[in-house]
Design a protein around this nucleic acid. Structure first.
Lengths: 154, 154
DNA sequence: TCCGGTTCATCAGTGCACTGATAATCTGAG
DNA sequence: CTCAGATTATCAGTGCACTGATGAACCGGA
């Protein structure tokens, strides 16, 4: 078995794509707030008052990672984290004014960055790009929980 | 500015794609050797005796990360790292027999995993998938070093 | 009321990934 | 030969990401 060509390895391409994105993010969006952190702010704009686990589900982060991201946002004063009076296990999360301002500012820059990032592709290609990646990612995630609704479609 | 739909954010998709890959890798290839570690082994099969920096360049990892990955492979006895007698700054890297065996074994499993990973796509779509990702990643990396050979084609 | 099972959050451990600073080494100009 | 600048590797610091183990809280049934 000789050396393989990494250019045909989707895992390697996925990593390169993320690195490329990270590079653009740092230069065009923010050096303070990372992309996952923005995703959390965004999720809390859409659903104020949800708990940590739910936010993790929305943005695709596991329980440990989401805990760290949220604690950083908390330390920076971008969100509040208060115990749910109706369920002592949960924390209810809500953006502060500062968090809301930050989200607004970064949302604009993020849109600009996405334009630059996707500039090499035509409008059509972008649609395909999203579609293909989503299909591959969805399928792999589906393998994790092997068929929940067994009665859904015989 | 309301909440954005992350499904149209390439950065978010890139992260999800990598997570999906990580999941499959762990279950189908190895829990010990990670995908970046395999990439390093693979690079050393292709070019035995190169230095650390060059390997990093081949697999797309920066100087710090490649140093850590290599030190882990070294600790596991998968490669040798000896000072270059002709240049005291460098280390010459070479796979051990164990490293070679590991690469052979994982190369087979990696090929199988890639089949499963790409199963949702037709042969045509896979070509497009690779092409689109590569173009986006290349373009973003190109923005980092703005035009090296200024005299090449003026 | 108590008890078992589930859920939410945290902690410990490991590994990838980047930047900026530092030290050792090499190289070329003088 | 000597010094300045470039190159190679390391270290410190920060942050994402996962698993497995632990503890607190909830919920349903006996």
């Amino acid at each position: 078995m000789a050396a393989a060509d990494l250019a045909t390895h989707p895992g390697h391409l996925a990593r390169r794509l993320q690195q490329a994105h990270h590079l653009l993010w740092n230069t065009m969006v923010s050096e303070e707030i990372t992309s996952p952190q923005f995703a959390v702010l965004n999720a809390l704009v859409a659903e104020p008052g949800v708990d940590q686990r739910t936010v993790g589900e929305r943005v695709g982060l596991d329980r440990s990672t989401i805990a760290e991201v949220i604690s950083r946002l908390d330390r920076r004063g971008l969100l509040h984290k208060v115990r749910d009076p109706r369920d002592g296990r949960r924390f209810v999360l809500r953006l502060t004014d500062e968090g809301l301002r930050t989200h607004r500012k970064l949302a604009v820059r993020t849109a600009r960055m996405n334009q630059v990032f996707l500039a090499p592709l035509s409008a059509e290609e972008r649609t395909v790009f999203f579609d293909l990646i989503r299909r591959v990612a969805d399928a792999a995630e589906g393998l994790r929980n092997p068929a929940e609704p067994s009665a859904a479609r015989g």
